[in-house]
Amino acid sequence: MGSILQIQGLKVFYGVHEAVCGVDMDIQEGSITAIIGSNGAGKTTIIKAISGAVKHEGTILCRGVPLPPRENRVVRQGIVQVPEGRKIFAGLTVEENLRTGAYTVRGRREIDRLLQEQYEMFPRLRERRQQDAGTLSGGEQQMLAICRGLMAKPKILMLDEPSLGLAPVVVNDVFRNIRRIRDEGITVILVEQNAKKSLGICDYAYVIETGRVVMSGTGEEMLQNPEVAAAYLGSSRK
């Protein structure tokens, strides 16, 4: 165990607008860390900075080593982002989508093994592997997006709004699988607007407001916290 990712004084500017204003985080290996907050708080920007997709100030260290500033090299470090809105490649088949995820993995046999792993986790994907991925349902596309991320053999998997636009039953399914991924030893960073669900499964959580960490603690603590309850659990608290 121990810390796998340390973020110190992270700042991101979009033009003159400061989207992230000095964020510190400490991600524990093998845990689920949730980043919650309202729309536009800067959650996605934080993981985009980790991915190298946006320029940033401050340091991001993976086991003490600074991350490279380019997406393709961050992936080679074992840090993989599953983007918001799933962003599967419509026009490629399900299996081709999975293979793009394994772009950094060498060896045909290893890639075939990884494919089998995903198909065992989601047999639905095996059934549809020759089908255009654009024809899958929203839930299936989300599963595909997560599996595509897993094809890169990540140490850290960053999920951006995996529950967005999915039916409640499907959301439960997705969250169950996120826990399963953690149990396999992969560190998960979960960016979510669905605060209640993500606090329910996470080990640790950060609450982001206008680019700053305003609270942090274990999922349990956050669920009990009256301020969190008032701001983020609102109507869903019954």
Binding site: N72, V80, P83, T100
Partner: peptide, 16 residues
């Protein structure tokens, strides 16, 4: 083919 469909997401797959 992936870059032709979506360059930003392709980069997230580690494609240079």
């Amino acid at each position: 083919r992936a870059v032709a469909i979506d360059p930003a997401t392709s980069r997230l797959m580690g494609i240079n």
